[in-house]
């Protein structure tokens, strides 16, 4: 469903992403790991069509993001890092706006999508609050609701559990797992346990390059008995 082919992005002379390729199929939950600044977010931004790659491309359901970004954006639900939203709007107004841009123009269709998203993310208690007054956990859920609203076949989630308390993390993981059967999911994270808990595949990216692409079981088998973060460290610091 997602086919990433040789993505390259420069920032000045620095190659932030250097020829990243992978594919994600329906039912996959791909855990995207890597140290800060390794190029995780940049890669995700290129898949979503927010950043234009210097070379390479990404196909989402057969649509090429460099040729037809709007078609790709229709297929995607994207949760950007730190879940930006228009703070002066209430949760309901904000999701209503997203629904309208997602082509649910008729009042009934729009409200139905908003209700569905509110239900999935358990936002109903704060639906009439403005987003800027919400706690971090709720804001993150608003970002989630926004990404899920049109029931997209592909979800791209940039650190979906960042800043949440342990209970909220569990809720979000359960939600992702429930949704994943029908979808292709890419999520980035710093938490290795999260990958073990929900991901069906792991990609580790370091200095803009893919260094690992395997199942969590294979990843663990690299150094039997070792802690996951020890394996992660040996993979991402060796070439530094």
């Amino acid at each position: 469903m997602i086919e990433v082919k040789g993505l390259v992005k420069h920032y000045g002379s620095k190659r932030a992403v250097d020829g990243v390729s992978f594919t994600v199929n329906r039912g996959d939950i791909l855990g995207f790991l890597g140290p800060n600044g390794a190029g995780k977010s940049t890669t995700m931004k290129m898949i979503t069509g927010f950043l234009r790659p210097n070379a390479g491309t990404a196909l989402v359901n057969g649509h090429d993001v460099t040729r037809d970004p709007v078609a790709v954006k229709k297929q995607l639900g994207y949760l950007p890092e730190s879940a930006p939203a228009y703070g002066e709007m209430t949760v309901e107004e904000f999701l209503g706006f997203i629904a309208e841009t997602r082509d649910f123009r008729a009042r009934d269709a729009r409200d139905a999508q908003v209700e569905r998203a509110l239900g999935l993310t358990q936002l109903a208690p704060v639906r009439r609050q403005t987003i800027e007054t919400l706690s971090k956990g709720y804001k993150q859920r608003v970002g989630f609701a926004q990404a899920l609203l049109h029931n997209p076949p592909v979800l791209i989630l940039d650190e979906p559990t960042d800043g949440l308390d342990p209970n909220q993390k569990n809720e979000v993981r359960a939600l992702i797992k429930n949704l994943a059967a029908e979808k292709a999911v890419v999520l980035s994270t710093h938490i290795l346990e999260e990958v073990e808990a929900i991901c069906t595949r792991v990609i580790i990216i370091s200095q803009g390059k893919v260094v690992v692409d395997e199942t969590p079981a294979q990843f663990r088998a690299r150094q039997p008995g070792a802690r996951l973060d020890a394996i992660f460290r040996s993979l991402t610091t060796s070439d530094a």
């Binding site: 927010f50 709007v70 229709k74 995607l76 950007p80 930006p84 997203i98 997602r102």
Partner: peptide, 9 residues
């Protein structure tokens, strides 16, 4: 980032 990942030119 939100605005430009919605289906809008």
């Amino acid at each position: 980032e939100l605005l430009f990942t919605l289906p809008i030119t």
